[in-house]
Design a protein around this nucleic acid. Structure first.
Lengths: 350, 350
DNA sequence: CTGAAAGCGCTTACAG
DNA sequence: CTGAAAGCGCTTACAG
């Protein structure tokens, strides 16, 4: 009889559950399933040798607890959601990979939720997602991470979250600040050190936190080195290619013409390239350009574009680890530092 | 008493389950929970008016069945996996969006699983993912979709799948063929109609199905129009930017120099741009270029790159719908047709 | 067409 | 430190 049920559970193992149930382990170990449960959940209330015996058995049988059964009993799933409205595909994919790396070995999986933060009812959509799936927690990617109404809803339904944003917006244990400002400072120092004095800046929409942080960092650092950009040299784009083209047309019509342009993302930098080429200006001979994001395109443009890189994968891994940490263990993420990747798009003005 | 429990279940609704349990609905409707279960699962064995009453109640209360409880009883989760090793981030993000669109309203969610198909044990990784989560099904994206060992494992563990590949590799109900060949035919006809006769082709690795399909379509279509490419004009790249640079150097050293180059992805087309510019060749004046993928970069390059676009979002939606369909309803996806997006990178040879 | 019983594989709450 | 009972919210298998 015991034999029969073992065989049965092994057959099951081959096609369904991947190593029997908690009952199989309990029977094999000669303990109650509650004790096995304690081992699974790392309760300290298990005798050392009992624990080791059970752990060996679990490995041997290849037993993995069923997340749905655990979730049903816990009233929380073993799923982490990633909520995003970021149009930068590489950003999303890198973040996913990082999050999964942070989840590795925990039995948690990542479920994705793209959304449109401009639609009125996107918060209701996220709410439904979180509540129905009883998500353990969610990772909030810019720009949804900046939406306090979203965060309020999550607090209301009791869902944990980790916010990723250009600067800290929340308590450290729920926040990953990417310090975009530091990246922009590095660009300012780089351009100044090359000898540029007549510099143009193309920003994103001012309602974006990233825009405000990057602009502030850039302008303050220039100012610290004695360079004040006149208002004519700062134009607001829309983080799109087309807006980059249009803003570059305005900047490059100035007299004297700026010798360098910093765009707050790579999309707009590509737009600057287009305008410069159309005007017969060579990069970096006549114009130096720096972007932000280090998108795949940056190294494909010709000449290749110097750009600020954020450690997106690491950010995703920290965010995931933060969500899994116990309340007590939770600590702030280490300092995230963006850095400028120098390529071929800049030189000293002539 | 009835009142009290209603209130209680509403409190719960606010923070946890989003609208009570099956028992609440059953009590309110004055039926057994089994009958409610039949309504949820669209069983025909329910009287029309009973069904309507229950459906109204479900809407009113905002009841949504707990996927973990259902999954535990069904022995299958309400999760669809997406398994990929494709380095094209935009492809992945579009596919995710499409899959989610196909899943909308079904109560299913999408869980992602990037992997490295070059590593020896990636199949074990996918197996663990599928078995532990008891996935309902998986979407297989190129190139993992081409791996018959992966598919064999999935059949062995009894997991449904939908494969996306350049050409049909499986029974129609499990396959979404993207007909890459048709896209390449269109490019051949386009270049020939512009008057190009001396054409270069940069392929991907021959072990990739997409490469074989695209190459075949292109060469056959040219042949049909009386153009036979000599072996010197066909070079094998690695689908990378760098390989595009190197292959272009070889092609552009030929005498007479080709007037057009077709690269089997956009990454390599960007490499051709770089080589052409370095040699002082202007695009499209001296050289016409066509890519494949219609990546975001295609429209950002200067001049913008003509490229073949696949309806990736739709493919994802079809794949998801296919997985949810019952065995009987399952039917082949409609014909997927890639098409050439014409931009500024080609003109007649002079 | 409808329902009472048993069970999916875990955990919590309570004893000991 | 360990376990028996009850329960998480559903479904299957069996009756009627």
């Amino acid at each position: 009889m015991t034999r029969r049920s073992r065989d049965a559970s092994n057959d099951t193992a081959a096609t369904l559950s991947g190593g029997g149930t908690i009952n199989d382990i309990a029977r094999l170990a000669g303990v109650s399933k509650k004790t096995v449960s304690r081992v699974i959940n790392r309760s300290p209330l298990v005798q050392q040798d009992t624990r080791e015996k059970i752990e060996a058995l679990i490995r041997e049988v290849g037993y993995v607890p069923d997340p749905m059964a655990r979730g049903l009993a816990f009233r929380k799933s073993f799923l982490i959601g990633m909520v995003y409205d970021n149009p930068n595909a590489q950003y999303i994919v890198n973040m996913q990979e990082g999050a999964l790396a942070g989840l590795r070995g925990s039995g948690f999986e990542l479920v994705v939720h793209p959304c449109d933060s401009k639609s009125e009812d996107y918060i209701a959509g996220v709410r439904h997602f979180v509540v129905q799936q009883r998500l353990y927690g969610v990772i909030l990617v810019p720009r949804v991470s900046e939406d306090s109404a979203l965060v309020e809803m999550l607090n209301q339904v009791g869902c944990r979250y980790a916010r990723i944003a250009a600067v800290s917006l929340d308590e450290p244990a729920r926040m990953i600040a990417t310090n975009d400002r530091l990246g922009a400072v590095e660009v300012a120092n780089y351009l100044e050190s090359l000898g540029h004095r007549n510099i143009g800046l193309i920003t994103g929409p001012q309602r974006y936190l990233s825009t405000r942080e990057r602009s502030t960092g850039f302008l303050q650092a220039l100012s610290k080195r004695g360079i004040e950009l006149p208002a004519t040299h700062i134009v607001e784009g829309g983080y799109t290619f087309e807006s980059g083209v249009a803003c570059a047309e305005r900047l490059l019509a100035l007299e004297p013409r700026p010798t360098a342009i910093f765009t707050l993302n790579d999309e707009m930098a590509a737009g600057v390239y287009k305008t410069a080429f159309k005007m017969g200006l060579s990069i970096p001979d006549h114009l130096s350009v720096v972007g932000f994001d280090d998108s795949p395109m940056a190294s494909r443009l010709w000449p290749s574009l110097s750009s600020v890189r954020l450690p997106i994968r690491d950010m995703g891994a920290f965010a995931a680890a933060m969500l899994l940490a116990n309340e007590g263990d939770a600590r702030a993420a280490p300092l995230i530092a963006p850095h400028l990747v120098v390529r071929e798009s800049c030189q000293s003005p002539r």
